[in-house]
């Protein structure tokens, strides 16, 4: 990575670390927290879909598993909340490993149908296992997280916790991408047969990718449960899976930082557009559509060249001269 880019990233993250100090009030800190939780889940999808090419359209299921497991362990069994979060992450990861089994044989649309079905199964279980999940009434009274003897209760405390976990996850995912695992996943994405011929253990790699993805989403979910204190099946529908998926795509699929930026931005954007009243969701969806449809990268290249031309010649450069 080029040093100036690294510097820019460091500045952005430094600013984000200090953000709660200058955000106008707790509400903005809270929506950042929601954004960070989503971004955490998106990192998993970047590994699974961006790096490994495995489609998961039921990704909210892992989020749900993490959230409900943590809630059930801490409320019904009285576990300490930190241990309950670990249990939630563990269960989500185990189910991630299970879901990788159909991915050994299936790919493309067939795999995506399979993951959609998994998402629906989990959602219907949360509605119908009333004795465990309190069903459609929603699960309330989930205690705050207690970490090393400190209660994470305020929006700001959550901000710093989620932010540091997010930075850690970004570093881990970026490292993973450049390791032999990342290269193996890329090989599987491009051509599974060729990858197998080259001696890559395709099944192990797919399982690993699914477990990583489920781990991230499960962690995000488990933390969300303690952050919001309330879970309800209607928050974990297929729509949420699609929005996680679109965050990944908007972020550029393969890019960990892009996924994180898209995860945070697409969570903040509808909240910031609330002043548009009943039109805000429509306009938000339009923006997402435009980001995906427009060749943003080549436009940015053009803009860069245009600016460079301006600086060099000190005059106007017609668009036509920007072509490579």
């Amino acid at each position: 990575m080029r040093p100036e880019r690294l510097k820019a990233i460091a500045i952005v993250f430094g600013l984000l670390a200090a953000a709660p100090l200058f955000l106008p009030n707790r509400y903005y800190v809270y929506i950042f927290n929601r954004g960070f939780a989503n971004a955490l889940a998106v990192i998993g999808l970047v590994i699974l879909f961006g790096m490994g090419g495995q489609i998961s359209l039921g990704h909210i299921a892992f989020f749900t598993l993490g959230a409900y497991t943590s809630a059930i362990f801490s409320v019904r069994l009285g576990w300490p909340s930190a241990a309950a979060v670990l249990a939630g992450v563990a269960l989500a990861s185990i189910w991630g490993a299970f879901l990788s089994v159909p991915a050994f044989k299936l790919s493309g649309p067939f795999l995506s149908i399979c993951t959609v079905a998994f998402g629906e199964v989990v959602r219907l279980l949360t509605i119908n296992l009333v004795s465990l999940t309190n069903g459609p009434y929603g699960f309330y009274g989930i205690p705050s997280l207690i970490l090393f003897g400190r209660r994470i209760g305020s929006e700001k405390a959550w901000y710093f916790l989620l932010w540091s976990l997010l930075v850690f996850a970004i570093l881990a995912a970026a490292r993973l991408k450049r390791s032999y695992i990342g290269r193996a996943l890329a090989a599987i994405r491009e051509d599974e047969t060729a990858a197998e011929v080259m001696g890559i253990n395709v099944r192990a790699m797919k399982t690993l990718a699914f477990v990583c993805a489920a781990f991230c989403a499960g962690l995000a979910g488990a933390l969300y449960a303690h952050m919001s204190g309330f879970l309800s099946p209607e928050s974990f529908t297929g729509e949420q899976s699609f929005s996680l998926f679109s965050m990944t795509v908007v972020g550029g699929q393969e890019s960990v930082l892009g996924g994180v930026a898209a995860g945070v931005a697409l969570t903040l954007l509808p909240e910031l557009m609330r002043f548009l009243q009943e039109y805000y969701i429509m306009i938000f969806s339009l923006i997402v559509l435009l980001i995906v449809l427009l060749p943003l990268e080549s436009m940015m290249e053009r803009a860069k060249m245009w600016m460079a031309g301006l600086a060099r010649e000190g005059g106007k450069v017609p668009w036509g001269r920007c072509s490579k």
Binding site: P24, N25, Y27, Y28, I31, R34, S232, E234, R274, Y280
Partner: peptide, 22 residues
């Protein structure tokens, strides 16, 4: 001031927090 909750619990929480804090 009208705030939408999209008939979803998570959005209702967002809206209530906006109403009170913001």
């Amino acid at each position: 001031v009208f705030l939408d909750d999209q008939a979803k619990a998570s959005e209702a929480i967002n809206a209530v927090k906006k109403a009170i804090y913001d």
